[in-house]
């Protein structure tokens, strides 16, 4: 399949079930809501080394947030419920509770709950105040700046992690510029995050390594400088590859996000240096979700 000069390879992204939650972070200004959200979702690119994958889903206008202040919706995913249960209060406690003027609310209901105020209230050292508002428990924790307000807990959902596309470009600059355009389009998909820096990962990995104890290592088949040293997936005109990884609250969200990225790249076309779009997988035997690029674009 070739669209606007861009080859859509007959490949698929292989993805896994992950357990996730949505948290709504608000603050007095959009700037501080975003600072808290970015800090809380920092160092959360891959479960391989971070224990979770997290990112900003979207900015929320003040009139849509639980306290009428500017907000940011974030998603956090982990491989299982117990992992998520551990990372969520830690991240909120260190990054949102500490961030000036912030508040933190549940962004979803249902599923097994993860703690917000249920765990963080103890920071109040006995001065914390609980309120039951229309059946939901909410906490006020006195802090030096005023009060930190948060919901008791948030719901969880079994989502999909590890959706991805690979962008094969004619140069490093063109591959990055194309990836930026794709990431911007993909970030608009509701229910999805792109957990890597700016949504883009330049060091996509394969499973395993020649070294013991390494679970993942550089995906040498897609490394342009190794073209002469073994099997390569890259045609001669490709000089750089960027990957965009997608985690979403549902299979449809990841599929929609994948399509948004491919459409944006196809719109750029071969003239802007996009040679081909590929996807990372493990042969189809590890992950239950397969996002076939050509089917998504059919």
């Amino acid at each position: 399949m070739i669209l606007n000069g861009v080859e859509i390879r007959d490949s698929f992204a292989e993805a896994f079930p992950m357990v996730g939650t949505r948290l709504i972070i608000t603050a007095d200004t959009p700037k501080w809501a975003m600072i808290a959200a970015k800090t809380m979702t920092g160092f959360a690119t891959s479960v391989i080394g971070c224990g979770c994958e997290a990112g900003v889903e979207r900015e929320i206008p003040a009139e849509e947030t639980p306290d009428g202040r500017p907000g940011v919706s974030t998603l956090i995913f982990a491989m299982d419920y117990n992992s998520l249960k551990a990372v969520v209060p830690n991240r909120i406690g260190q990054c949102v509770l500490t961030s000036p003027t912030s508040a933190c609310y549940a962004g979803m209901e249902g599923g097994k709950p993860v703690s917000i105020g249920k765990a963080l209230r103890y920071f109040g050292d006995g001065w914390q105040i609980a309120k039951n508002v229309d059946g939901k428990r909410i906490w006020r924790i006195p802090v030096m700046e005023g009060e930190f307000v948060c919901d008791h807990e948030s719901g969880t959902v079994t989502g999909v992690g590890g959706g991805n596309i690979l962008i094969l470009g004619t140069s490093r600059r063109e591959a990055l510029e194309a990836a930026e355009v794709a990431a911007e389009a993909m970030a608009k998909t509701p229910g999805c995050i792109l957990p890597f820096p700016g949504g883009i990962v330049r060091s996509g990995s394969k499973v395993g390594s020649k070294y013991k104890g390494m679970f993942a290592s550089s995906n040498n088949a897609y490394c342009p400088t190794l073209r002469a040293q073994g099997p390569t997936a890259l045609p001669p005109e490709v000089a750089s590859v960027m990957e965009i990884v997608i985690d979403g609250v549902s299979e449809k969200a990841v599929s929609d996000c994948t399509r948004a990225g491919i459409e944006a790249l196809v719109k750029l076309g071969r003239d802007k240096g996009v040679v081909a779009i590929d996807a990372g997988n493990y042969g189809g035997n590890l992950g239950p979700f397969h996002f076939k690029l050509r089917e998504i674009m059919a």
């Binding site: 639980p66 306290d67 009428g68 202040r69 508040a103 309120k131 508002v133 229309d134 939901k136 909410i138 006020r140 005023g146 009060e147 307000v149």
Partner: peptide, 15 residues
């Protein structure tokens, strides 16, 4: 006297 975020939450969540 304080600006309390909780009042804003009550204004939206408490029927």
């Amino acid at each position: 006297e304080h600006d309390l975020v909780m009042l804003r939450v009550l204004a939206r969540r408490s029927h």
